[in-house]
Design a protein around this nucleic acid. Structure first.
Lengths: 334, 334
DNA sequence: ACCCATTAGTAAAACGTTTTAGTTAAGAGT
DNA sequence: ACTCTTAACTAAAACGTTTTACTAATGGGT
């Protein structure tokens, strides 16, 4: 019941292991193996159902045809959708994706990087968190392709693909202002991560540009990783304590929590109270009334990431790093 | 810049490779290595940051401390949530999870199994589809632990963990009937998979038990993998063509599509028209009014799966197969 | 003084590949 | 008749571990 090895095939075909290996790897022509032998060996391989041991292969070659994807949380629909898209696209090019979540835990992220490293993945796609700069730098030192996405770590010289959160957030707030809103809140998350900071900066800049005083009390920073019930409490408090006529949420799950609050306190989204979410979510469109949102172009992001990876994998020389910022889209609904 | 190997450590410590290996694997005592040597080697390992090459290790031992998770579609929130839970729990026991989606494509599923097999994963968690019975049987022949979940393949002798879809579906319809509904529709999916069939059977049985005639025209079977826009068209047609006062959706994404239809045709969920979804989704609770649903106990399912796996991995002998059916819960909202 | 057990350690095979550096035989060119 | 090329193939090293079967030295018991 043991799996066949290349040796068994060589034995059956009465040729050397080397010859079989060449044939398997498509180097038969170049190594001048005769057509007759090629045919024979291929037939034996098909008949016997032999599959090369990828572990042995990886040990010898140092690579794996696997791309590692490290994200914050696979149960967040933004990440699960992008994972799915990346997986599809990579698959079509003969690469497999394996993914795992960091839960924004530095240690877990480091372990994952090590896991992937020790499994010799060929390239890394990482939605990073502060604190793993060094680990990523080690990958870069080994000349492994690394693409950061969603969030950048500016101190690192590598590739980045992300949406333009500053502009997106700016435009969201701007659209509030054009509707005549004055008391615009931002519900964001208390984490020192570039893409979140940008959303805050965009919010502030829009207010300043339109000469609306920035009231820090209208900015609610939710502690990271806290149970949703507490988040709901905090948002509820904000909505009750302050006079607010518009809210921008900085992530989709914050917006979901916010919508739950509105439901609980029986407050409607209407002319008096506008809401914009982030990253979209089925619940936004279905909500009554539908909720506007800032939509990241997932398809384009996934496509760009894969393109960068494949370019690097197929190039002998190190390609210049690219920072690709893709515009996000404000989807106004109601 | 090359990674350190066990050889380097042995050299530095002036001991043999064997000794280092014993120490790394905690067999030092049993192999009577002196405390002094143990200390010395451990210190060198820490100082140098040496990490054993897992590929070489897997090649030699034939296992990997990795559990492979094969699901239908990671972007479906049911699967992404369960993936996340399984990942958490396995992680705490020292196992890593790698997962990938089949998209209900037999070929892709087979390739994934082969990928995982060739990567020597220690165990498999699979939400299976028809057509991969043989491939799974091969795994079983190799005495690899296999847990099926969500859907069973009854012809296979292995472990299964899933919710009681028959009862859940029965209860959903029963609750409609108790509200006085007579024209109860089922929107399900046209796929020959046990858990979907059970939902249909539960629906039918409830109608029969309460002496309500079963009208097959009230059962809409959506082709699998079709674009959502077509699904929406079909549901819209059903809602318009037939007199219906209640609908049970057999999956969460069908329910989402259904809710979109209701929104489009401006039909409200109220005393005249009841809806029950499946698997829950944030949009259900947030919907106005909230949508009732049949909730699978994700936490419990994940817990059970991991427990089964760990039991098998730690047992020398083959444990008897278990078929664990966990009750689903009808969550009535409004 | 000898044997035996135990302690402390090691050499080498094995896992299944890829790849380098060959070898052998046949034919071409002079 | 000889060298040179090329075609067709192969032996063996290497990748980095684990593990089996060993050796050498020490000390205790008689």
């Amino acid at each position: 019941m043991k799996a066949l090895s290349i040796k068994d095939i060589a034995l059956k075909a009465n040729v050397s292991i080397t010859t079989v290996s060449f044939i398997i790897n498509g180097k038969a022509k170049e190594k001048s193996i005769s057509d007759a032998v090629i045919k024979k060996v291929q037939q034996i391989i098909i008949d016997s159902g032999y599959k090369p041991n990828q572990i042995a292969r990886s040990l010898r070659t140092g690579n794996s045809n696997i791309i590692g994807l490290i994200i914050e949380d696979i149960s967040n629909s933004f990440f699960s959708r992008i994972a799915r898209l990346i997986e599809d696209k990579a698959y079509k090019k003969g690469y497999k994706i394996i993914y795992s979540s960091t839960e924004n835990n530095v240690e877990k992220a480091q372990e994952l990087i090590n896991l992937f490293k020790s499994r010799k993945v060929d390239a890394y796609i990482i939605s990073p968190i502060k604190g793993i700069e060094e680990d990523i730098q080690l990958l870069l030192n080994e000349h492994k392709p690394v693409i950061l996405f969603d969030r950048n770590l500016p101190e690192l010289n590598t590739n980045y693909v992300g949406a333009n959160h500053f502009v997106a957030s700016y435009q969201g707030v701007e659209s509030f202002i054009k509707q005549g809103k004055k008391n615009i809140a931002l519900v964001t998350i208390d984490i020192d991560v570039q893409q979140i900071i940008e959303r805050y900066e965009g919010y502030k800049k829009a207010l300043i540009d339109y000469a609306i005083p920035v009231d820090e009390e209208l900015v609610l920073k939710i502690p990271f990783n806290q149970p949703e019930i507490d988040t709901i409490k905090q948002i509820k408090h904000l909505f009750k304590a302050k006079k607010i006529d518009a809210v921008l949420f900085a992530t989709n799950y914050l917006a979901i929590s916010g919508l739950k609050v509105l439901k609980q306190i029986n407050k409607k989204i209407d002319d008096q109270f506008a809401v914009i979410g982030y990253d979209d979510h089925e619940a936004f469109e279905l909500h009554t009334p539908s909720v506007s949102t800032i939509q990241q172009p997932l398809e384009e992001i996934a496509e760009t990431i894969i393109k960068l990876i494949l370019n690097q994998l197929s190039s002998k020389t190190k390609l210049p790093d690219q920072q690709i910022i893709i515009p996000a889209k404000l989807i106004l609904r109601n």
